[in-house]
Design a protein around this nucleic acid. Structure first.
Length: 256
DNA sequence: AAGGACTGCAACCGCACATTT
DNA sequence: GAAATGTGCGGTTGCAGTCCT
């Protein structure tokens, strides 16, 4: 019942997880603190894009996909952490009723929450609901066998939940996509999540990097947040000289 | 105290769409 | 226009912490 707020992702227990390596030679499994730091650093440099490039250049032995996922679901500075508030829970239920399992869309309407988080929440939520209604229906069935079973509603609702996929698995209804995009952007900017100026600036860096130019040592810091403060603090980086560390990283990247 | 069941969550997978070459 | 590459999404899995018996 009690949940561990932060599963120990940054210090995986020694064992198979730590050594898990995908066929391509890429690492799999939980991320280490070191990897998080590196990733945060390089995302800061290049922006949230070109994940394969970023993965390669950073020297992280991870796929671009994996890097993106880690960033989006865990390291992103705008993420809220911790339990959902009752308001948020209500919103999830509400939006799910409207949009089904379109987690990314729901997530866009809930700044600070990721699709993964919402998906996980919904899954446990419905699991609990299903269990509750099952026990409730079992109890009522013992008293009356003929009444319309509550389980009917529960099972139909849970099957809606589970089969909702069908309603959208054809994916991204194009006719509403454009207007939805606009609305989504509106939401994002209202929530203060837009980072375009930051990305534009990073474009220039990436271009020069691609051409072998030296990377400027002055980086515009992203909006402050606990995660970023943590990532950027000397205590975490454990270094006093960014340039030295960065050169080391480049050496690693060059070797790969 | 032990160990199985339950739960929450991070991460992976496969697929589809988007963009670039 | 086709192929290659990149990105995003939803579903699923598996680990680890907590609860329960």
């Amino acid at each position: 019942m009690k949940m561990k707020q932060t599963k120990k992702t940054s210090a995986p227990s020694p064992g198979k997880q730590e050594e898990a390596v995908a066929p391509g030679g890429f690492r799999k499994g939980p991320w280490t603190e070191q990897e998080d730091m590196k990733l945060a650093w390089f995302v800061r440099l290049f922006g949230e894009r070109r994940w394969d490039f970023l993965a390669k250049v950073s020297g992280l032995n991870r796929t671009g996909k994996s890097c993106r996922l880690r960033w989006v679901n865990y390291l992103h500075p705008d993420l809220k952490r911790g339990r959902m508030s009752p308001d948020e829970e209500r919103l999830v239920v509400d939006l799910h009723a409207r949009w089904g399992n379109r987690w990314s869309r729901i997530a866009k309407a809930m700044p600070g929450r990721t699709d993964n988080e919402i998906k996980n929440y919904w899954r446990t939520h419905t699991r609990k609901l299903h269990k509750d209604t099952r026990t409730a229906s079992a109890a009522s069935a013992s008293t009356s066998m003929s009444a319309a079973s509550p389980g009917t509603t529960s099972s139909s609702s849970s099957s809606t939940i589970d089969n909702d996929n069908n309603s959208h698995h054809g994916h991204r209804d194009q006719e509403t996509a454009a207007s939805q995009e606009q609305a989504d952007h509106q939401l994002l900017y209202t929530a203060g999540i837009g980072m375009d100026s930051h990305l534009l600036w990073n474009d220039a860096i990436m271009d020069s990097y691609a051409w072998g130019a030296a990377v400027p040592s002055m980086i515009v810091p992203p909006p402050s947040s606990p995660v970023w403060d943590y990532c950027c603090s000397d205590s975490l980086w454990g270094i006093g000289d960014d340039e030295v560390e960065y050169k080391k990283m480049l050496a690693v990247a060059g070797a790969s």
